[in-house]
């Protein structure tokens, strides 16, 4: 009887729980920040994963299920970045509105062009993504496409606020294009240089600003460096006159530190998402901080 009362209380209290604002859940914080820019106070946005963790291996906390249960819209990065953690909790959320192919589901990888699509896949190649490199959000040009896609989706779900979302998107695009000029000017000084990255996570960013990726510290995606491979990277750094090793915040840094100390190349720890470092507290400051760390 007590249990029944509890259940009934839960059911009836939902009327208070559901606010009129659109409930948006995003897998990563960068998506949440773009939604905030466009939806402002007309949406309530909740990111699931933390920005300073490995986006491939997020621990699917049961509390995420409660967040998904009440969502009107789920926005994912896609490109199989969430394949290791999202499917079971999305299934357990029992929310028909946000399942793939429904109106309340948006896969951002569908709106951008992915690079490095492998012609053949085998797990011999490590943690390979059959649909291409999923870290497309680090191309600043893609952010404009993503923002537009999100604005269109919000309009579809909440047509009454369509003009509000479009206006916010236009304003965001204006600010972003200004920022793009600023970043391109700053990055001009290091255009064409060759760099090594720990994991193939900054490829879109580096390509956009004309930098050359000479190699990776990990021998294969998701496989930690071996001494043999570090030896190869050492020779590569010396031969190609590599200036920077780009290290993410979540992988072990000892291999990059070793190479940096031994060969005198600079190791730069770059954020990859909003919240990865404390300076990157929004989508604009994320790119500000990446450019600052690359050029200082």
């Amino acid at each position: 009887m007590k249990m029944l009362c509890f259940v009934l209380t839960c059911i009836f209290s939902t009327q208070g729980v559901f606010s009129e604002r659109l409930q948006v859940v995003t897998t990563y914080p960068y998506i949440a920040n773009i939604v905030e820019k466009i939806g402002a106070d007309r949406v309530r946005v909740i990111p699931l994963a933390r920005g300073d963790y490995n986006p491939h291996v997020i621990i699917p906390k049961p509390s995420y299920i409660a967040k998904l249960r009440r969502a009107d819209l789920l926005i994912i990065n896609g490109g199989q970045l969430e394949i290791g953690w999202l499917p079971p909790i999305l299934k357990q959320a029992n929310n028909a509105n946000i399942q793939p192919e429904e109106k309340g589901f948006l896969d951002l990888s569908m709106c951008v062009h992915l690079i490095d699509i492998p012609t053949s896949v085998s797990r011999e190649q490590g943690d390979v993504h059959p649909e291409g490199n999923p870290h497309f959000s680090l191309d600043p040009d893609n952010i404009l496409i993503i923002a537009k896609t999100i604005a269109d989706k919000l309009c579809e779900l909440d047509p009454e606020s369509a003009s509000f979302y479009h206006a916010n998107n236009a304003e965001f695009a204006r600010v972003w294009e200004q920022k793009m000029k600023e970043w391109k000017d700053k990055m001009e000084s290091i255009k064409g240089i060759k760099v090594v990255e720990y994991h193939k996570i900054y490829d879109y960013f580096l390509r956009r600003f004309g930098l050359v990726i000479a190699g990776t510290v990990e021998p294969l995606p998701g496989i930690p460096p071996t001494s043999k491979h570090i030896g190869e990277v050492e020779r590569l750094i010396e031969r190609d006159k590599i200036l920077f090793i780009l290290q993410d915040v979540y992988n072990p840094q000892d291999a990059s530190e070793y190479l940096s100390k031994r060969l005198g190349v600079k190791m730069i720890v770059l954020p990859h998402d909003v919240g990865a470092v404390k300076e990157a507290d929004g989508i604009i400051s994320l790119f500000d901080e990446m450019v600052r760390r690359m050029t200082q």
């Binding site: 839960c10 729980v17 409660a66 249960r69 009440r70 959320a93 029992n94």
Partner: peptide
Amino acid sequence: ITWVAPTDLYLML
């Protein structure tokens, strides 16, 4: 049959 409560706290019956 499972039911997930639409609450901030995760509750599944």
